[in-house]
Amino acid sequence: MDRSVQKVTVYRVVCIILLIILVLLFMFPLYWMITSSFKNGPAINANPPIWFPGAEHRTLDNYHTIMQRPIWRWLFNTVFICGTSMLFTCIASTMGGYALAKKKFTGRKLLFSLFVAAMALPKQVILIPLLKQMAFMKLSNTLWGVILPTVGWPFGVFLMKQFSETVPDEMLEAAKIDGANETRTFTQIVLPLVKPGIGALAIFTFISTWNDYFLQLIMLNESRVQTLSLGIAKTMAEFNINMGPLIAGAVLSAVPILTVFLIFQKYFTRGITMGAVKG
């Protein structure tokens, strides 16, 4: 008995040491990106590498150079796309999820299967037809070209159906008996109960929309409508030799979303795990 306890502990210590090494490896790209963005040209790819840049290697030039680009415009576009998609997704999904979970309308089962099936299909294969559709709707090169398909993606409805299942039927019955109409039942009873779900969905949509590079790439061709990450990606070829400004751009594109993630990560985690239940 004593021995087995000790063995478990040794095993655990080894695991934790291994884990810490892995964490360091995983953090390294982030560390390298941030420190490199403050290094001057020769220091970035110095041999031997400069692990901790001293004052003589430090500069803000990379940021000055990349700020010549319409960074603020790109940031605005990104936030607008993510914010609007988030808002619409939450409204449509909360209503739809509630209906699928609690309203016994004809065709409910069929609709739900359709939503789930669509979720299992690769999202990206529909992007080419979407591009033609947006051109037809005169929405090419507009932020709506990214927003509308994002809102249409069925994950939100699926997630909110899961959350709405937890609303007790008795409460809905009681509201009905008290003479509350549909709108009142929804806003006064359902909404407060599924609020945590909406929070999870909101943050999940915001982050995944921010990082949906492919959709942005095919929909947004002009600099004035581009997003932060897309705009930075387009400068890649230009800063091939001196990567400094490009790295600074990468930092600028990652910092806002990392901040959002760190603040709301609890809700975010809940969104991911709820989506998987009975997935």
């Binding site: 209503m95 739809g96 699928l100 016994k104 309308f105 669509a118 037809p129 979407l130 249409g152 993606w153």
Partner: peptide, 26 residues
């Protein structure tokens, strides 16, 4: 039925318009 479909309308609009339709077009 009416309530169900009214609540479904926004989600269905986006889903059919920007997922199902392009899938069909594909």
């Amino acid at each position: 039925n009416i309530a169900g479909y009214v609540f479904m309308t926004p989600a269905l609009l986006f889903f059919v318009g920007f997922v199902i339709f392009p899938m069909g077009m594909c």
